[in-house]
């Protein structure tokens, strides 16, 4: 039921995820943060099996942090995404695999480029200009096909994100009410109100 969107623009990546934690037909919580800040320039939206999601996200968070402490510099987005993908791919063929889908957004400070990766629980990784997970993908992706512009300013990018969220609110039977939106650019990570 989790919905997450992410899109790149000129020098930034926007990552958005709904904030509801549901169990069966009951909303347990409406302010859950499903976007982890992995490093100063790296974000990860996670969704999937409750329990697995947070467990895996924290595992990733701490390993990325460990790398940073050991090497004094952070992993760049492509390397971080590869490591996370490998963790999921190895987990898939273990006794109890993690069922977690991810959108990894980062800003590479050495090349000054935004990066976005679409990753699913099988360990499928694909660099994408925009991506979505959950029911939101059925409504959002076609809108993003039409309106996404890799050269768009932040405000234009947020407008495109609003279109996606509004469409989900309008058409999805069980649409979530609130979203958390985080942005990563040259200045690092920040959260904004939509």
């Amino acid at each position: 039921m989790d919905i997450s969107f992410a899109l790149t623009g000129k020098g930034y990546v926007i990552v958005a995820a709904d904030t509801t934690a549901a169990r069966s037909i009951v909303k347990m919580k409406t302010d859950e943060d499903k976007i982890k800040v992995l490093s100063p320039h790296l974000l990860m939206a996670f969704s999937g099996e409750p329990g697995d999601t947070l467990q895996f996200a924290e595992y990733v968070e701490r390993n990325i942090r460990l790398y940073q402490i050991r090497n004094t510099y952070a992993l760049r987005p492509p390397s971080a995404a590869s490591w996370i993908r490998r963790s999921l791919a190895d987990s898939l063929r273990s006794r109890r695999p993690y069922a977690v889908n991810l959108l990894i957004g980062g800003y590479d400070t050495s090349t000054s480029t935004p990066h976005l990766y679409w990753v699913d629980y099988l360990g499928t990784l694909s660099p994408v200009p925009f991506g979505a997970h959950g029911y939101g993908s059925y409504f959002g992706l076609s809108l993003l096909d039409r309106y996404h512009d890799p050269e768009a300013t932040l405000e234009e990018g947020l407008d495109t994100l609003r279109r996606c969220i509004d469409e989900v609110s309008k058409r999805l039977v069980v649409s979530p009410g609130k979203y958390k939106v985080k942005i990563v650019d040259k200045d690092g990570v920040r959260e904004i109100e939509l």
Binding site: R86, A89, L92, L122, G123, T124, L125
Partner: peptide, 8 residues
């Protein structure tokens, strides 16, 4: 085939 295995 399966995309995760393509990368692996």
């Amino acid at each position: 085939g399966l995309a995760t295995d393509v990368t692996t």
